[in-house]
């Protein structure tokens, strides 16, 4: 594959030098130890009543609450509805943002024409639309989906525009002298240049859309992790609340890892070293 490499920026000098003073072998042990100490300290402080147990239940109670939930039937349904809305939002927002961004990036007059509108709509915090969405779409999971798509669409759109334009001029000239069709140019020159931008955008969109889905669940009361967190608080079950907050964190880590894995697979197949 010769052409895609033309779109690659000049190789960068590796920045990170091996840190001389870094303690070796502590990569696993040290964090584990720190975690154990933190948990033990929290347990001790709440057991002895230094921290109010009703606000900060001992870690063991939170763990027990989590185990009870894991055994329950509703837990997986709750998790499933949050994660499926989240993934669906990404599946809609990323391709849509990429497609619109590509068009705007290629057709400069249209982009200049629409830029102020984009710049106005983009910073509107999409949670402000919640009341409107409740009135028009209702209180189903589709409301959460709409909010998450609205929020992450802009985060993909703007980098996509920049990405299309970041194609190397020589690569574009080469494509022209080989009389590439528009599709060939997009596929082999511009997409390759866009990928690093899209990767960052996707990662941002991933966390934004989770925030929006959980917010919608908390405020609108759509079934899901966010709803369980507020419900636990309002019935005064702090341990269950922390258990669900932990679950939302774990879900965040897992989906981030999946997105990162996909990103790397995509980069490898396009011959660009995955840059974090």
């Amino acid at each position: 594959m010769v052409l895609p490499t033309l779109a690659r920026p000049a190789p960068r000098v590796p920045r990170r030098r091996p840190a001389p003073g870094r303690p070796r072998g502590g990569a696993v042990l040290l964090p584990l130890l720190a975690l154990a100490v933190a948990v033990a300290l929290q347990e001790a402080l709440t057991r002895t009543g230094v921290l109010p147990g009703s606000y900060f239940p001992p870690a063991s109670q939170t763990a027990a609450a989590l185990l009870v939930e894991l055994g329950g039937a509703t837990f997986w349904q709750t998790l499933g509805s949050t994660v499926s809305t989240w993934l669906l939002a990404l599946l809609i927002a990323v391709p849509l943002g990429t497609a619109v961004g590509t068009v705007l990036g290629l057709v400069r007059p249209v982009e200049a024409f629409l830029r102020p509108v984009v710049e106005f709509l983009r910073p509107i915090p999409s949670v402000a639309l919640i009341p409107l969405v409740v009135l028009t779409i209702g209180t189903s999971a589709r409301s959460a989906l709409f909010l998450a798509v609205f929020a992450s669409f802009w985060q993909v759109l703007v980098p996509a525009i920049a990405g299309v334009r970041s194609a190397h001029p020589i690569a574009l000239d080469t494509a022209r002298s080989y009389s590439f069709t528009l599709w060939q140019r997009l596929r082999w020159v511009q997409l390759a240049a866009m990928l690093p931008h899209l990767a960052t955008a996707t990662r941002l969109a991933t966390s934004t859309s989770l925030i929006l889905v959980v917010t919608a669940e908390i405020i609108i009361g759509i079934p899901g992790l966010g709803h369980e967190i507020t419900m636990s608080r309002s019935v005064g079950n702090a341990a269950r609340m922390y258990a669900y907050i932990v679950v939302s964190g774990v879900a965040g880590i897992v989906v981030n890892a999946v997105v990162k894995r996909l990103e790397r697979a995509l980069f490898v197949s396009h011959g660009i070293g995955a840059q974090a």
Binding site: G226, R233, I245, S248
Partner: peptide, 11 residues
Amino acid sequence: RAIPATALVPF
């Protein structure tokens, strides 16, 4: 960091 910030509203 992975915990969505708004999940901490009840907290």
